[in-house]
Design a protein around this nucleic acid. Structure first.
Lengths: 236, 236
DNA sequence: ACAAAAACTTAGTCGTTCCTAACTATAGGT
DNA sequence: ACCTATAGTTAGGAACGACTAAGTTTTTGT
């Protein structure tokens, strides 16, 4: 009938929705300050934009309480995540970036590449399911393979686990993790956990390392006893 | 001293300078209306931005007369052309785009890709000198191999020439040209030129085609030295 | 040479998205 | 319960980059 009213959809809007989705994955309701911190904006800017996004039907908003994406908002957010993660993998596999450098580049590219571009790199990469950090890539239809791996921090001494995902929030951490061999598919043994919130000793490829709790919180693993083979994964 | 004052350099500024450069290649002085038409903006918008760009040192401007890039402006414009043309070639060679679809995608990408991205695709492509339409790619240092090939329109009946460049101003024309085999490096013979501004008959890969004068104006060729020095009927 | 047409500039406005400052609602501690 | 600390919202404004309308300069035609 109409479609004459074009939906505004700026880079800002895309960022707000994408980050809202990511916050929402952990806590059902998203707060103004959480989004403000993640986007690096003043809280009042968030309130303004959230009110606008509600009018556009991208999210439900209860003043002073919080907001969450509608289906429409989720669809757009998953599209952005698909762009972002495929771009990251593309940068690593095709252009030879190291995994700690891809985030910012993808962050800028994701807003301007066309659907055609994304589908072409998807094909070129063989329809991958995970990005270089182990984050799942939403399908073109907006389906996301949820992953709920425990954190390395939650493991006990003696366990043998496999790295499945590494938080990509900090390039510096990714560089550190790669140095230690803590990349997706790496096999590690938890040798001991110091008491009183102490460091964790792990063994990777025969070498022992002590890593802090913050680091162990950023690494997600799969416990080895179950499961067999998964498709091969790219190394950064 | 300074470098504390960051140079503003928006997407708009980049577009203004890039297009100014392209117009400037043909006519020393660039006019408000020429730029307005190419950018699709109102003339007053051009005046405003040009005044700003002068203050920033990107161009010299004489009110009511015209403007031209400074060295600083040229450097930036050549950087944008380098981005644009490498991206176009990349889209064709690596992602399999057809040459009539690359312009818009490159137009958006050129503003967000990092220098690292561009240098990586440059290496991947083997430091190419020409984009898919035959336009020269500026070097990283901002040097541009000038090309001054004559237009097919300026050729005479009987000449045997090689296509060197095809205007990329219209995707539709590129599609038409590709259908006829009129792509860079194609060898063509000018069979006859109808009088009274009539069409031109050419032979490409053994097949004859009649093409209009507008088309012949968009194709740039190199004369094969086999022939003639005797101008017959110059096509004006 | 001079009036009309064309080209260009100025002035003022609008939408977008950010900000700061000031105000309001909710939550926690005693 | 109450009162303050924290979180959230409203109001107002700035930078950008586009626009329209109106005024100015240059060019053109007779």
């Amino acid at each position: 009938m109409n479609a004459l009213v074009r939906e505004p959809r700026s880079q800002s809007i895309e960022d707000y929705l994408k980050v809202t989705y990511q916050i929402q994955e952990q806590s059902q309701w998203v707060t103004t300050s959480a989004l403000a911190e993640r986007l690096g904006h003043a809280p009042s800017s968030i309130t303004n934009m959230v009110q606008k996004l509600q009018k556009l039907g991208y999210l439900d908003y209860t003043p002073y309480y919080g907001f969450r994406l509608t289906d429409k908002g989720k669809r757009l957010a998953l599209g952005m995540l698909r762009h972002h993660r495929l771009l990251e993998l593309f940068l690593v596999k095709v252009l030879g970036y190291t995994w700690d450098r891809v985030h910012e580049e993808a962050e800028r590219l994701e807003h301007v590449v066309s659907g055609e571009f994304v589908e072409r790199i998807d094909r070129l990469l063989g329809h991958p399911r995970l990005d270089p950090h182990g984050d799942p890539i939403p399908t073109e239809e907006g389906r996301l393979q949820e992953t709920t791996h425990p954190r390395l921090l939650e493991c006990f001494a003696g366990e043998s686990v496999m790295v499945r995902r590494v938080s990509d929030a900090s390039g510096e951490f990714l560089r550190y993790a790669a140095e230690l061999g803590l990349v997706p598919d790496a096999r590690i043994e938890v040798v001991e956990c110091a008491p009183f919130e102490g460091p964790i000793r792990i063994r990777v490829q025969g070498k022992d390392h002590y890593i802090g709790r913050d680091a162990a919180r950023r690494i997600f693993v799969e416990r080895k006893n179950a499961k067999s083979s998964k498709p091969k994964r790219p190394l950064p």
